[in-house]
Nucleic acid binder design. Structure first.
Lengths: 203, 203
DNA sequence: TACTATAGAGAACGAACGTTTTCGATGTCA
DNA sequence: TGACATCGAAAACGTTCGTTCTCTATAGTA
């Protein structure tokens, strides 16, 4: 009848319930890992920043690596949702493809932007952690797939989506490292590639 | 009269001279850092792999960070030389621009390829080490400048070079993470962008 | 040959890491 | 109220890190 109180009854003396504590920890870990890199952030720092004791942290997560994985899963969810929201607002399939680059532009301009967390994590840990490498690979593949759907909706040939993906990836690293407004460059290039691809179609 | 023996006389009992030892250390460190990430490689591992004792290592370099910086400097040199060699082989300015993507393709297919070391280092350490962030930024800026020169030689407008740079950057991360043949995709997109840019010129 | 300086191997150091445990304090249920 | 469970804070554990130091062997100089 009342499932939420039932859960609360199980963890009697908790200041906050497990789900909220987990969410707080993942949010804090996401910010810390993104800003400083994963290995540079110790569990003590995470405990302090999240406001959750070390003991509870290790009751909620089996290891730091598990936290990393859940952070990446959360960031993937956030990315996918943001992308889809931006694309949904655009009226035509062509506009949906371009909306991706507007979405990137807003992201690049946000405070603390430091590139794609999947690219960063892959560079830092992909060489020694197959799990992290696979998570990054899956994330990028899903983006490719999403782009391919949008491109197909626009009636474009199959080669367009990978080309636009390269622009988006390049814009992320360039904006992070060089601080340039690479979203605008990427968008302009995307217009050219899209028009060229649609022009080659025998419609 | 004999400057080389004079140097050898200064370091009497050396098995190999300082310059060779330094080069060996930087080569070994470059391979290790690239394959596993920087923080994942300890000085003991580097000492063993380079065949240089810890004591000597710290006589040759003041710190691990100094080794990292010199590794990046060496990789920058190698990248610049390889790029220029590839471009020089191409007959026309347009072919020089495209030769970059052929160069990338060969690199991506090489053993142990794991993306751009500057992007990886930036992701791992850029958040806490301004030096590393600046080295990565300078490297990418030099690439942008090189591309701009080639594009200008081809008679293209100024917006082309940043667009091609995005393709190259995106191809590097995509090839590293997804393992796809992104150099071919990038090259095809580059052809479209170059032709479009040259077509807009009022010649 | 005796002296000096450097080499390499590795022990040792202090700090930081991920993880576990201890320790009162607090809230829940019989 | 009293037994119990869980909390946060922090000490402690074993390991690893970057860096320094010790030790012995050896090569060059006089």
């Amino acid at each position: 009848m009342n499932p939420a109180p039932a859960v609360a009854a199980k963890t009697r003396a908790s200041v906050i319930d497990d789900a909220s504590a987990r969410a707080k920890a993942i949010a804090a870990a996401g910010d810390l890992f993104y800003a400083r890199g994963i290995q540079s952030v110790g569990m003590d720092t995470l405990s302090r920043d999240a406001g959750i004791g070390l003991k509870r942290l290790y009751q909620l997560f089996p290891s730091k690596e598990a936290i990393v994985e859940q952070v990446l899963a959360a960031r993937h969810e956030k990315w996918t949702t943001g992308l889809d929201t931006a694309a949904r607002r655009a009226p035509t399939p062509r506009d949906k493809l371009l909306a991706i680059f507007d979405f990137l532009g807003e992201w690049f301009a946000s405070d603390g932007f430091r590139g794609c967390v999947f690219i960063n994590s892959f560079g830092e840990l992909g060489g020694k952690s197959p799990r992290i490498a696979e998570i990054a690979r899956a994330h990028k593949q899903q983006f490719q797939h999403y782009l391919a759907e949008l491109a197909a909706d626009a009636g474009a040939p199959a080669f367009l989506a990978p080309q636009l993906a390269l622009l988006a990836e390049g814009a992320q690293t360039t904006a992070a490292i060089s601080g340039a407004d690479s979203a605008a460059d990427a968008r302009a290039a995307a217009v050219t590639l899209i028009d060229a691809a649609l022009g080659t179609q025998a419609r």
